[in-house]
Simulated scan of single mutants.
Amino acid sequence: MRRALILQMWIVLFLGTFSRMGNAQVANAKVLRGNSITTDLYRSDENITVTSAGGFISSPNYPKAYPRNLCLSWKLLSPPGTVIHLEFDEQFNIEEPVKGKCSYDYVEVEEKSQSSTIKWGRWCGQKAPSSLTSKSNTLRITFKSDDYFVAKPGFKIHYSLVGDTNLEAAPELLSDMGTNEMPTTEVPQTLEDLDKTIATFDTIEELLKSLSPATWRQDLESIYTQTYIYYRSKSYHLASRQNKVDLNRLHDDVKRFSCTPRNYSVNLREELKTTNAVFFPRCLLVKRCGGNCGCGTNNWNTGCSCQPLKTTTKLHEVLKYSPETSPYKQQQQKQRVRWVIGEIFLSHHETCECACPLQPPR
């Protein structure tokens, strides 16, 4: 009787161990990424009307860990004549990227209009932009998680309305928004017109104020903070605005050095129009006016030419050889090549100016 009881206990322990091993194998199979045993994605699409009151979007369970197998989408719509501003919460953490790419869990922002699609970025890990502002009144935010790792706290994005908030009082505009989308300012319709408009401004602030007076501050900041999926500029990684690329300085440098004296190498025989002598060195450096007439200004590509305003003549000493003419052919053939120090004068340009067809005579 006692032996039978002991045998029964050993059988129970053996079956329990086998059962736990089997369950562990199934559990491991379910979490293997790319395995066929997965749970279907939970999908959700939501439309949100953005008003002056604003609001926020967050990952489920924020600030706790978000669930697995999600594909959530929010479409943000604002009244015509307005744009949408997004602020990312500092507590941001989604599954880390793999080989620098957010392939598994990520939050993505894109903007689609009738003429173009802007992919503002796809973010994961612990880095996200502080803010960004749309160019139109429609944004789409997508959050995706797979069936493997999760992280916390996830993400939280605050959205707000930028532009003419008085439109909120007109229900008929809200019900029709997106069908009669209008820009906040009159923007040139073609790239050629926009290029000509840019030439009239000296600073990036003046340009953005003219094109987008309601959102120019956010637009200026987004130049240094917005990111794209395939490329991040060095400016994005620098710590402060003072250390970032100075677009105004680059613009001033182009105007300052477009038409300036610069080194050119000239062939002495061609420059002096001499055919009965040779020189060493064959070429010398001289200062000559060069460059276009202010690329980025109104004078660009309008027939203007870079011409010298002040010219000076400088003396150069070189080796010179001139064969002597002799009536005796045999004596000429035996003549040695004799080099002498020769003095030549070359023209140098000290200052330059742009001469334009429409420019009045001085």
Rank of each mutant, 00 (worst) to 15 (best):
1 M>K: 11
169 A>S: 15
323 P>W: 03
107 V>D: 06
135 K>P: 03
214 A>K: 15
235 S>G: 01
311 T>Y: 05
277 A>C: 06
23 N>K: 15
332 Q>G: 07
267 N>S: 14
311 T>N: 10
303 G>Y: 02
177 M>S: 02
156 K>I: 07
261 P>F: 01
328 Y>G: 00
176 D>S: 13
119 K>D: 06
305 S>K: 11
212 S>N: 08
316 H>L: 12
26 V>T: 12
256 R>T: 14
166 N>A: 14
144 K>L: 11
351 T>A: 01
105 D>M: 03
174 L>V: 02
302 T>I: 08
279 F>G: 06
15 L>D: 07
102 C>R: 05
102 C>T: 02
201 F>Q: 10
11 I>W: 11
247 L>Q: 01
348 H>G: 00
233 S>K: 02
196 K>L: 12
238 L>M: 15
345 F>V: 04
265 S>Y: 15
109 V>W: 04
98 V>F: 12
20 R>Q: 13
158 H>V: 01
190 T>H: 03
242 Q>E: 12
33 R>F: 13
147 D>Q: 11
8 Q>G: 09
343 E>K: 15
224 Y>P: 02
318 V>G: 08
310 K>R: 13
235 S>Y: 09
307 Q>S: 10
202 D>N: 13
52 S>V: 10
155 F>V: 01
224 Y>R: 09
298 N>G: 06
37 I>S: 12
332 Q>I: 05
305 S>W: 05
232 R>E: 09
190 T>S: 07
184 T>H: 00
95 E>D: 00
128 A>G: 03
228 Y>L: 01
118 I>C: 00
340 V>I: 13
325 T>W: 12
308 P>D: 14
